[in-house]
Design a protein around this nucleic acid. Structure first.
Lengths: 188, 188
DNA sequence: TATAATAACTAATGACATTAGTTTTGGCAA
DNA sequence: TTGCCAAAACTAATGTCATTAGTTATTATA
């Protein structure tokens, strides 16, 4: 049952992610990808349903990375330490894989069962990590929205050179996160 | 010196912004814009230096709106009230003009003297509004990075249907902002 | 009214994505 | 080993873009 010859979806995705990281998601074209893979571009349609499907697949691929990374980041940690570790990992990933991260946040809308499932897994990590704060259901969800917004916004501004100031990025992250968590503790 | 006939840059930008709002920035093509304006697409080059220039001009146009809006939002207000008002205005704008907002954050890098100037104006509004908190220079800048990240991330997730949960968006905004500001007050 | 500048136009090119139809190839059953 | 079938590659063609070059029309002003 296993095809030995030619491409498979996995290697195609890996190459696509590399291209996106190198040149930006906008420059990930089927032409360029085909060329990188030593193939004519219509051949890619045997593995991927056009450019939209490729981008959606990249988003899922990215989310899978993020889930693994973030689970790893909180092992053996709890409370503030866990949240800070998780945040730092998130931003480090966005820095290392800018094109892949771009694919993730330019889809975001759960456009496939796979991304929906991964979204839930991400959500659950946040919920678990916030348990020690005892915020209650509603406020936990508000808090998660806050954390996701902040992390995504920070990553996005970083990518688009939105931070011009000569000021250490990690210090900014740390300062802001500590302030927010302190506000949470003091009972919002 | 004033040309009476035909297009000018202003009406072109307004039409472009409308198109972007209706169909998303990706679907703002020179073809579509020309058609909307009753003109052939090469004619647009008399007013705009290709698509990249158009998008950059839209970004500046958006920033000008934002500066005006945010200045207006804090008139007669100070402290927490001013910051909450400013945040709400920012998000309201992103909701109302999604395509225009997209142009803004997909450029962001100060790619022209105009956007650089507008960036500084935006920055100064934040600085002024944070003065009552007496955070000192460094921490003020960290805080501004936090606010910008959060607001941008929130707007971006909202636009990409990143918030699936049945949970009021304005309440999330309010909860998160209050927690953060509380954390700031308690001396980070 | 004639001229110079401006802004529209047509035509052409090249990069894409995508589709249809054809050929090649490799696993598997006889 | 041989022949078949399905998968995956290919070529050819189409249509949509952005962009450039070169041409025509129009308007303000001298």
């Amino acid at each position: 049952m296993v095809r030995r010859m030619g491409l498979d979806r996995e290697t195609l995705l890996i190459a696509a992610a590399e291209l996106a990281d190198e040149a930006g998601l906008d420059n990930l074209t089927l032409s360029a990808l085909a060329q990188k893979l030593g193939v004519r571009s219509p051949s890619l349609y045997n593995h991927v349903n056009g450019l939209p499907d490729l981008r959606s697949a990249l988003a899922a691929y990215c989310m899978q990375h993020l889930v693994d990374l973030m689970r790893d980041a909180v092992i053996g940690k709890s409370g503030e330490e866990a949240i800070l570790s998780l945040s730092a990992s998130y931003l480090a990933f966005a820095r290392q894989r800018p094109g892949l991260y771009e694919a993730f946040y330019k889809i975001e809308a759960s456009d496939s069962p796979e991304t929906t499932k991964l979204s839930e897994q991400l959500l659950n990590i946040f919920i678990r990590v916030l348990e020690p704060y005892g915020l209650g259901e509603q406020n936990t969800l508000h808090t998660i929205r806050g954390l996701r917004s902040f992390l995504h916004g920070f990553a996005s501004l970083e990518q688009n050179s939105g931070f011009q100031m000569k000021l250490d990025l990690d210090e900014s992250l740390h300062f802001v996160m500590r302030a927010f968590l302190k506000g949470l503790e003091s009972g919002a």
